[in-house]
């Protein structure tokens, strides 16, 4: 019986997880290593990689700052509307990414609320890096906050109170006590946030405008190349994203081990 269940799980995992991964790499290397690297060296591919890295950097940085602030406020202070704020933080997870993208079109598009004003001042948000970064930031906001809130709530406020009573200022307390206590949780949130930021398709697709060599991120380029039957190029870029996923997975496992230890050492 146990053998049967294990076998079913393994077969399922192979068909749905391992096989697709193998196919990605097989297709990428179908015409040899030379072609693979040539495909990655294309200007369009390089531009997509650059844009993706830049977008991920911007949105992870923003979410790091705002996620930590939101988690700090929610877990260490009591105020009205706290429950509402917690619910709002989850909003990007519950909304379809396409809708998230459309929201930005409605705000910044030519027919949007601020569109005419932006146009008259020659500020480009949609179909440019700011729009892509904004949409990605929106979609990936919950990761950092979500990974910190339970941890911070569990740790309570006693260590902060101790620091304050020992004469530490608010900032000293934050940087010397609060932040070190959640560092593994924070890294974990950043890691997941980064993986999602680089892989985001839906919201970015709506705001990017698909300008070749300019506003295509890696996931967008994969789709475009695939639709144009350039399978090797398409899968070559897809293989980079797949590798990102594998690295994320490994890093996540390591971090989770640290997180468990951190929580164990917290108990008294």
């Amino acid at each position: 019986m146990r053998f049967l269940i294990t076998a079913i799980a393994l077969i399922f995992l192979t068909v749905f997880v391992v096989l697709p991964l193998v196919v990605v790499f097989a297709q990428a290397f179908a015409k040899g290593i030379g072609t693979y690297f040539a495909a990655l060296g294309e200007p369009e591919a390089l531009s997509a990689i650059r844009l993706t890295l830049l977008t991920a950097f911007i949105s992870v940085s923003l979410n790091l700052v705002f996620g930590v602030i939101a988690a700090w406020a929610i877990s260490k202070f009591e105020f009205r509307g706290k429950t509402l704020l917690i619910t709002l933080i989850d909003l990007p997870f519950s909304v379809s990414p396409v809708i998230s993208g459309l929201v930005f079109v409605l705000m910044f598009g030519a027919q949007g609320y601020w569109g005419p004003w932006l146009q008259s001042h020659n500020i480009h948000i949609l179909f440019a890096l700011p729009g892509i970064a904004l949409a990605t930031t929106f979609v990936t906001f919950p990761f950092v906050a979500r990974s910190l809130i339970p941890l911070m709530q569990e740790q309570g406020t006693q260590e902060e109170e101790a620091a304050i009573s020992l004469g530490a200022s608010g900032l000293q307390t934050f940087f010397r006590v609060t932040l070190p206590n959640v560092k593994w949780g924070l890294l974990y949130g950043v890691l997941l946030c980064n993986a999602r930021a680089m892989g985001e398709f839906g919201a970015v697709s709506v705001v990017s405008g698909h300008i070749r060599g300019e506003t295509n991120t890696m996931p967008l380029l994969v789709e475009i190349l695939y639709n144009e039957y350039q399978f090797v190029s398409s899968f070559a870029i897809a293989s980079l994203l797949a590798m990102l996923a594998l690295i994320t997975l490994i890093a996540k496992t390591i971090l989770e081990r640290h997180l468990d230890e951190g929580q164990l050492s917290g108990g008294d």
Partner: peptide, 13 residues
């Protein structure tokens, strides 16, 4: 003022 907490509140890290 020196304050000693019930559950000590030592800095765990």
């Amino acid at each position: 003022v020196g304050f000693v907490f019930q559950h000590y509140a030592l800095f765990r890290h």
